[in-house]
Design a protein around this nucleic acid. Structure first.
Lengths: 112, 112
DNA sequence: TATATTACATCGACAGCCGATATATGTCAA
DNA sequence: TTGACATATATCGGCTGTCGATGTAATATA
């Protein structure tokens, strides 16, 4: 029941993959969606996002492609099968970690 | 409803302060306690702990003192009133953050 | 006596994240 | 129409958190 590293830094990748597991998106769309869905808790910065997207592509978790929208090229990203596996693993680790923190600080224990 | 930074890296400080809010401890004791209480999820390393303790002392959140145990000097740490305030703030932010992650990944939403 | 364990400590390196900066296009109001 | 703002992608330098490696010293154990 050990988690690989600190599953909290490195957490942003999980959120991005989760978004893309639902539908393809481009960068700015991810920032907006993340912000809205989380009630402005997540304020992902472009300086964080773009390097992260590139590294996820390099790792084989995402695939990027260009799409013309309103006569403008946008870079869309699509999750790969490996990306889905990776996402599942990250979510598992997050649950383990968050549950342990909950135990420590006496919060709600939301896992058996 | 915005959290200061990423409340996950920097999370270790919260766990340490939480331990010390219950009783004074020395370094190794914190590592052991953290490990046992979390079912080995947290494996805090000394290379992480000692610099962290020093910075918490410098920040006024902890006070250190020497105590002789079995004829040996140990460095015990005690949380300060400021440390308790800081801890409360960190726990609040953690709950906000963890709840938002839960919302994102479709986990359990344990906050209103 | 040699090895392991406890205990504290520091250093260099790496990774994640962000602010600043750059570039290009589109929109909207003065 | 010009300047300001928003959208969109991108990179770079720096900061912080974390860890592995290493060092030291005392005690316990085999």
């Amino acid at each position: 029941m050990t988690v690989s590293k600190n599953p909290v830094s490195g957490n942003t990748a999980m959120l991005i993959l989760k978004l893309l597991s639902e539908k393809d998106m481009y960068g700015y769309e991810m920032i907006d969606t993340l912000s809205k869905r989380s009630n402005n808790v997540f304020e992902l910065k472009v300086g964080t996002l773009y390097p992260l997207l590139h590294s996820l592509v390099k790792g084989g978790y995402l695939k990027g492609y260009d799409k013309e929208v309103n006569g403008k090229l946008r870079k869309y990203y699509q999750i790969t099968p490996n990306g889905r596996k990776y996402l599942d693993r990250m979510i598992e680790e997050w649950n383990t970690y968050a549950s342990a923190v909950g135990m420590m600080i006496g919060g709600v224990n939301f896992e058996s």
